[in-house]
Nucleic acid binder design. Structure first.
Lengths: 218, 218
DNA sequence: ACCGTACTCGCACTCGATGCAAGTTTGCAC
DNA sequence: GTGCAAACTTGCATCGAGTGCGAGTACGGT
């Protein structure tokens, strides 16, 4: 199995890991070194001016090896799986008996792990957001990941309400929600270089609420 | 001004074109030849197996010239500006006096030019849709275009209702709408290879309606 | 007929990405 | 420990997308 990033060989669905093992620890360290080197170089010299060879060299790793950890240059900006997706999934699975589909989504959005998510703030997240807004390749990748997340969530929502929502309805509902959040976030961060997290969250939930309200009583 | 596609120099907002001129006609013909050659080759051999050099050769044009018509290989799949965006904009500008913001969007969605849009059907559109679903680079590009469209529409909606919708609220509202449509469409075309246009449209509007209804009475 | 400009196109080059075929290291038996 | 297989790293060669440059060609206006 050549050319496919090795990480994909170790899905590790539920942690039955009594001990990571030396090999895996080394590998993780290398991976981390690449992420850090990339962050540093992107910040200092910019995304386009930084080559994959630069990153590998800075991490003291063969250029070829970079691609056994990350499938592409963009990938190094998204080293961890999106926390928010799994939170949304869990919100669906652990729904209250009398929750309507839309309630589940609203509650997921209010979930602590989502509200407190560092995806919007934090040192590396700031760089990520900036690059998403300025580098086409990165933006494209981010949008793809968002669409994948939507599909996944819609799948679960449909499974949770098989009688009331078919697959298409569920996708439309999830799309409306994530679309509202995404649109608001996009507008909200438009001119900002260092947004205040608390303020963003406040403004975001107001805007989403307003959008849903407008839809409700039109 | 090298390397920037020449087409971007000719936005031509409103047609004051008394005569295209030989030069422009030639250029347009070349462009068309490239699109057709690309369509043909993509269909026959697949996207990845077709190089830009192949396309240019098939159109009997220098490889270098391809990039003076299209900024990238993906671009050749989207030769004309998205009709739907301008329709949505026009729907906003020509709104009825008592239309609420959401009404405007709903009406735009029902607009003939959108309902009858060949973006989902037609020979080239089918190829496009298939490649969007299978080739990451194409999907990324399509999603970027959709986000650009959302921003544009939100900007106009905000301008049309400056007192009731600020920029963020407008973006959230438009995001909810387009998200619902996009999500439904994505799910709807999931397994289909040759979807029936009429049926798609019918099912689509039902799903979007359902999503909005669910939001309305949650 | 003349000239400026718009466009074409070949050439050389950079960079991201991949196949291949060694090497090297780890995990696991015995 | 010894030995072996699998996991991982790495250099090398190669391909294709995309760009700067500079020379050539054709159109458009005078």
């Amino acid at each position: 199995m050549p050319s496919v990033p090795y990480s994909s060989r170790v899905p590790s669905p539920t942690p039955p890991e009594p001990r990571p093992g030396l090999r895996e620890r080394k590998r993780a360290r290398t991976r981390r070194a690449l992420v850090e080197a990339a962050t540093e170089l992107f910040t200092r010299n910019g995304y386009d001016a930084t080559t994959v060879a630069d990153i590998a060299a800075a991490a003291d790793i063969g250029t070829r090896t970079f691609f056994s950890h990350f499938a592409s240059k963009e990938e190094v900006l998204f080293p961890e799986a999106d926390e928010r997706v799994s939170v949304a999934i869990r919100s669906i699975d652990e729904r209250a008996p009398d929750d309507r589909p839309a309630d589940v989504l609203v509650k997921a959005l209010a979930h602590p792990a989502i509200v407190a998510s560092d995806d919007l703030v934090g040192p590396r997240a700031a760089l990520r957001m900036q690059l998403i807004r300025t580098v086409p390749a990165v933006r494209g990748r981010a949008l793809q990941m968002q669409q994948d997340a939507q599909r996944e969530i819609a799948r679960h929502l449909h499974a949770a309400y098989p009688d009331e929502l078919d697959a298409v309805d569920a996708a439309a509902l999830v799309g409306a929600f994530t679309g509202a959040v995404g649109g608001a976030l996009d507008a909200l961060l438009d001119g900002e270089d260092t947004p205040d997290p608390a303020q963003v969250r406040e403004r975001l939930s107001r805007a989403v609420g307003a959008a849903l309200a407008v839809l409700r009583d039109r």
